[in-house]
């Protein structure tokens, strides 16, 4: 399935990209994806799907727009 992934803030320097399309296995979870793009497990982050927060165990779905962001706190 096709998924668009956007990485935000300093996490792009961990992932090595800021936007990329992926072809993923249908059983992929949010956690699988985050691990796959090289974000360390201990790094706090918020992941959104089409602008809404998702949980680590949630399944990614075909056509999703996923964003992986550090936990911002409003400066």
């Amino acid at each position: 399935m096709k998924v668009q992934v956007k990485v935000i803030g300093p996490l792009i320097y961990k992932a090595g990209f800021s936007e990329k399309d992926f072809d993923l296995d249908p059983s992929t979870t949010v956690n699988d994806l985050v691990e796959m793009i090289g974000i360390p497990a201990e790094r706090p982050r918020i992941v959104t799907r089409n602008g809404k927060a998702v949980l680590p165990e949630d399944r990614i779905e075909d056509g999703d727009k996923i964003a992986v962001s550090p936990i911002y706190s409003g400066g």
Binding site: K6, I8, G9, T48, A67, S69, Y72
Partner: peptide, 9 residues
């Protein structure tokens, strides 16, 4: 860095 997060949500 927070700008794309705000844009996304």
């Amino acid at each position: 860095g927070v700008l794309p997060f705000c844009n996304e949500v």
